[in-house]
Structures are given as C-alpha cells and as structure tokens.
Design a protein around this nucleic acid. Structure first.
Length: 382
RNA sequence: UGGGGCAUAGCCAAGCGGUAAGGCAACAGACUUUGACUCUGUCAUCUCCCUAGUUCGAAUCUAGGUGCCCCAG
C-alpha cells in the first residue's frame, strides 16, 4: 500500500513548530511523497509593525528562527523545504479586513481568514501549480471521507481542537487537504517529535495572530488605528467613570485595560466589563458585573455564512461555539429574506460581533459564520 | 478663622496601644494559533499628612501645624 501513497504528492505547511513537524513525519511514515513549504506572510518592517512588537530588538528575526527550525526538521527527515511569501496576499486579504473590522468597532478573527485565504487558498494553489495533490497542515482537526462526501470533524484531542479556525473552509479546500494530527493527542505529538529528535520537540507553542506573533495588542493596533481618547460610561446609570484611549482597542466582555477601580458606592469586589462600544460617539460602555444583563443576548444575526456540506434546514437546532475553546452551546439556525440568524434557548453572555459562530453536529463541524449584530428581547444591543 | 468631622498604597477601604486586612486597578506568569475570558503570583518596612511628646512599644493616645469636608456666617 506504500506504493499507492508514494505516488501522492503532499505539500506540508511547515511552520517551525512541533505540530507541523510531526504532521510531516507522520505523512512521510505513511509513505506519501512529501515536501515541505515554509510560508512567510508578514514583514514587520514593511508593514509598520513597530509599536507593541517585543521582537524588534531580538538578535534574530523570529521568523528566521522558525525557518531554521523548519529547515532542521526537513533536513532531519530528508525532505525538500520550499519557501514562499504571501505577504501581499496576507495584507490584502486578511489584514485589510482585520483593520476594517476594528474600525467598525468589531473584534475580527484574522486567523480564520488567514486559513480561508492564505493557507488553504494561496498556499494550496501554489502547491497545486507545483504539481502537488494535497496540502497538509498541523491543525488539530479531522477530515472524514464517506463515499463522495468529505467532512470536517473535531480532533481526537478535544482540548486542542482547531476546527473553530477552519470553519470558513469550503468543501473543495477540504478535499485537497490532509490533517495528520486529527487522531492523536498533543502529548503524543510531543512524544513523537522527541523520539524522532525533531528540533521543535520542546519548543513552546506559538500564540498571537498567525504569522504575526505575540504583540502588546493595543500598541500593535495603534500602528494602524490611531488612538482617540474618550470616556468610559457606566451603562447602568450613564455616569462617566473613566477614560479610554480608543474604543477600537477593546473587546466586548473585556475586563483588563479599563483602569477603573475603587469607585465609591459600588461593590468593591466586582470588576468592570466592556459591554458596548459606540464608535461614532467614541464611548465605551461598561458594567460592574460579569453577569450584567447588558452582556446578554438571545439572538444574533450572521454574515459570511459557510456550510461545508450544504446548508442545514431552516429551524435546525445545532451546537455552536462563539469563541475558540468555549463549550458548545445550543442554538437554532434560521434564514429568511433579511438574512440568517441564530436564536438561543437561554441568553448567552458576552457574544462578540466580528468573532465566528461555528456550527457543530456532534463532532462534525458544519461550517460557520461571522457574528454581526446582537439582540436581546428583540432589541439590538450592540 | 465659631463649632464639628476626616487625613492609611493609583483608587476604595479595614484597623480603636503591640509591631499595616481586603477589594478594584496595575504589573508579571499560566492558559491560548484571533481578540477576550479565566487562573496564579507580585504590589505600604527612613510605612499610615507633618512635627513634637506620652509609652517598653503609637497608624492607633496628647499637643501644635498643614490640607480637605460639613454646619453655622
């Protein structure tokens, strides 16, 4: 059976981290004709990424450290490493969207669009042009093939499941992809990397926006969206209780960075949470309770609706994740002339416009959408 | 310029003679391929507005300053 797979050419996206390194090793072991591709999609200097960037003074650019790690892995496994840049594509298709969303007062999820437009589009097409049959990544997700149909499913390691970030993929994109880590745990991945003496075996998982990295977020945004000071208002009594440096920089449900504390006549044990952003008036509304009624919604409208295997029937109740690593919650999907929306059996807390609502039926990821407006008892609240 | 009250960390605040609670904020770390949430830790020592005194010992008592608040002008 190795003969069959040896004729299948797979381009593995190799990031320099453990996950993609092990993905590569596993596919190679299975007998595929594997190559590796290292992407560079962000140029900190060219993209004016200075403020809030902790790596500027590093002796070696972190991307080059990652490249070195990727190269070590490729060399260790005897695999050819290609290198490709999608800096323009990332800027145009992901980062412009990201900034436009923030300017509207929303909280976008760039990594979802990075997958949709870069890894599973620009990178996939690049690989196809080079004659590859598939791309593969180190995502924790399963691709399940049943006859002619292909499904996206949660990874075996439920704690690491990354289908949330893959919710905007099309069936076509999925068909050309392999997820070698879908059936193993993170612990096993680390163990395999160690056993094979792969350089990133003990490397810390990377976080922050994919391809950009860890940033002091508010300062990072200030490179592109200028600070505009304004007031912070208690949504429950309209009183000004503080000042912010720009409503754009905050997320609904956020607590940190408000600088409000020790106000008289308030419960001293309670913290303040962002519950509304008025971009036009530049007002940030907050509430003094993590369960304040103003944080609740019972219906949300959706844009960018994507069903991987065809749209579900109007009125179907499904499981939905509104943020990464959140427990699934019940919601009923509706679509009419006005658009699509979800209705909840009970009000949910701090749902954030711009983030993804991702649909599940058991372990199958049906697709997802982007959260538009929030409603509570039929009143728009965002 | 008569009377009364209060001055403790960025903010709120406990403490009532025995060697500075707690909360919020902030910061750091953990978690995390977005942004958040969450969790853990740190955070007053020529220290409790200043000065002098009483005392073995004072944030706590006394006197005098200084500042703020309230009532009466």
């Amino acid at each position: 059976m190795n003969n069959d797979k040896s004729k299948i050419k797979v381009m593995v996206g190799l990031s320099g981290g453990v996950d993609s390194a092990v993905a590569l090793a596993l596919l190679q072991k299975e007998g595929y004709d594997v190559h590796a591709g290292f992407m560079r999609n962000w140029d900190a200097i060219a993209n004016n990424d200075f403020s809030g960037n902790p790596t500027l003074l590093d002796p070696a650019c972190p991307q080059e450290v990652d490249y070195d790690d990727a190269l070590k892995v490729a060399n260790k496994l005897g695999v050819t490493l290609h290198r490709v840049d999608f800096i323009k594509e990332y800027w145009d298709d992901v980062f412009m969207y990201f900034l436009a969303e923030y300017e509207k007062g929303r909280t976008p999820n760039p990594d979802i669009f990075c997958n949709k437009y870069i890894k599973f589009d620009a990178f996939l097409n690049w690989a196809k042009k080079l004659g590859f049959d598939y791309i593969a990544t180190g995502h924790y997700a399963k691709k399940i093939v049943k006859g002619d149909e292909v499904f996206l499913a949660k990874s075996l390691d439920q704690d690491k499941d990354q289908t949330y970030f893959l919710s905007q993929l099309s069936k076509t994109q999925l068909e050309s992809t392999l997820f070698p880590l879908g059936d193993i745990t993170k612990t096993e991945v680390r163990a395999i990397a160690k056993a094979l003496h792969l350089a990133p075996a003990t490397k810390k998982d990377s976080t922050g926006i994919c391809f950009i990295g860890e940033r002091q977020f508010r300062d990072f945004l200030k490179n592109y969206i200028p600070a505009q000071q304004g007031v912070i208002v208690d949504i429950n009594n309209g009183k000004t209780i503080g000042f912010h440096s720009g409503v754009y920089y905050y997320t609904l449900g956020q607590r940190r960075g408000l600088g409000i504390g020790g106000l008289k006549d308030y419960d001293e044990n309670k913290r303040w949470y962002v519950c509304k952003k008025d971009v036009v008036k530049n007002i940030l509304y907050v509430a003094n309770d993590d369960h304040d009624a103003h944080l609740l919604s019972d219906k949300i409208t959706l844009t960018d609706i994507n069903f991987i295997n065809g749209e579900i029937e109007n009125g179907t109740t499904i499981n939905v994740k509104f943020r990464y690593r959140q427990a699934d919650q019940k919601a009923t999907f509706y679509r009419n002339e006005q658009g699509a929306y979800l209705v909840f059996p009970t009000p949910y807390l701090a749902i954030t416009p711009g983030q993804a609502a991702v649909f599940y039926l058991d372990d199958i990821c049906l697709g997802g959408a982007i959260i538009a407006d929030l409603y509570f008892k039929n009143n728009k609240i965002n």
